[in-house]
Design a protein around this nucleic acid. Structure first.
Lengths: 250, 250
DNA sequence: CGTGGCCTTGAAGAATCTCAAATAATGTGG
DNA sequence: CCACATTATTTGAGATTCTTCAAGGCCACG
């Protein structure tokens, strides 16, 4: 299990311009419509900061809840889950970061990670030494950058709360599928056919249902011909119907 | 109804150092334990920015969801609710900002407010012209400042999701009372006896229950002698028991 | 003193959860 | 390469919880 506080010996340390790296991996793939302004920043963040690429195997923990914060992690490829441990060993999934997402933003203030990040498939991240970048950045460009990203995260988080609030199980699952669909599309994959990296239990935790209810709901969707479900391979037959399901009830 | 995009004519424009104002109102009252580092920042944000105080009457809207973003608002006194409008006129309360909290952080990226802010009592805010401050800040101090606040907000938002996730109605209401208790204490009031500014319906929306269930749960708590409930006046008899309720179940 | 908003309480109904069992898929070790 | 252990998924049925619908009371305000 990888610990967040130290760069494992195996990781190659590759110094190169952050801006270039940012362009190629982190910010570029982010939700395009929302993020157009971030993709081409007016000012450029610090260059010449040593970044580290790090592979993370399926099931490995990138950083643990409560561990000291040193790095932000830009997901280069793969899928993660962010989890909080509730009492009684029960844990809560708060998001499924994918390529282009930045992990660890909620640790800046406290200096400790507020959640754990676990790889749902063999993945690779880019470790960004927060203090170093913060210090070496002459203009407020980097901070302004982070501000925008975090503002975006806040909006996303708020949006997620809507999913957990009132809606029926069908609305929740529909919302989840639509989120995933958008995420896949934003990364250049099909919006209507994709492979889910997460288990039913993880989905359930994320949307606030039990795994059984998630399973039943997906079965129901399939029975009605709205989506094809074959294990974790999803084929959305009608985005419109899913949106209706998500919106109508409450 | 006040609109976020323009300073009403009645508001007095009072130029004074932002740092001073920040010390007195915005950051100082924030959750002390978590926030010790923010109370006395190593660097000082921009001075000499014209800030505006604005009274907001009970029921008035400080800014609307979707409206153009120009100001951050530091709550000087009073209580607000942040609400999102779901479909079908149903709306979702996402937080109850109080003195010292900063409103509008989730609007930075999109340039439009992601939620509305409504006063739950006669309140007063300090309007911070975001662009002006951003521009006049020579060092990255201001942005770094915001970063930390937003990081904190992210953590808070995540924490709120835990409340909405699985728990029973009793765990949710207990969690809400404990949150409120901490918030009151952080602002110099009693942690065990306070006046709630929000209706049962608003509480219900916040914790993901109907107002009836909230009412019933509060009644049950009172019946068992755990809290005193007299309309909106709350007396917590045992914080310990409430914490147990919040933690045990799931 | 009437009106409207807010709160409480009851009873029936609906939805999800829990418990349980069977099946399928995956990985391990021999 | 196969048998076995483990994990993931589906489905059923009963139990529980919350919601819905409804009615009545309390309080502030005009």
């Amino acid at each position: 299990v990888l610990q967040g506080q130290q760069v494992p010996a195996v990781a190659r340390v590759i110094p190169f311009p952050l801006r270039e790296e940012a362009r190629r991996t982190a910010w570029k793939l982010r939700d395009p419509p929302v993020n157009a302004s971030v993709v081409e920043p007016a000012t450029s963040p610090a260059d010449d900061v040593a970044l580290t690429r790090r592979p993370v195997k399926l099931g490995a923990t990138l950083f643990h809840e409560g561990s000291r914060f040193h790095f932000l992690y830009a997901v280069r490829q793969g899928t993660f889950k962010s989890v909080l441990v509730l009492r009684a060993g029960r844990d809560q999934v708060t998001q499924f970061p994918m390529a282009g997402d930045l992990l660890g933003l909620d640790a800046i203030e406290r200096g400790r990670h507020a959640s754990s990040a676990v790889a749902l498939e063999d993945s690779e991240v880019c470790a960004i030494p927060f203090e170093a970048v913060q210090a070496q950045s002459p203009q407020p460009a980097w901070s302004a950058y982070l501000c925008r990203l975090m503002s975006q995260e806040l909006a996303r988080s708020t949006h997620h709360m809507l999913m957990l609030a009132k809606p029926s199980s069908e609305a929740r699952v529909a919302m989840f599928l639509l989120e995933l669909s958008s995420a896949m599309q934003a990364r250049g994959y099909s919006a209507t056919e994709f492979h889910m990296r997460m288990t039913r239990a993880e989905i359930g935790s994320y949307v606030g249902l039990t795994l059984e209810t998630v399973s039943r709901t997906l079965s129901a969707f399939q029975r009605r011909g709205w989506v094809g479900v074959e294990k974790r391979h999803i084929t959305i037959k009608s985005l419109r119907i899913l949106r209706d399901i998500r919106d109508e009830d409450n």
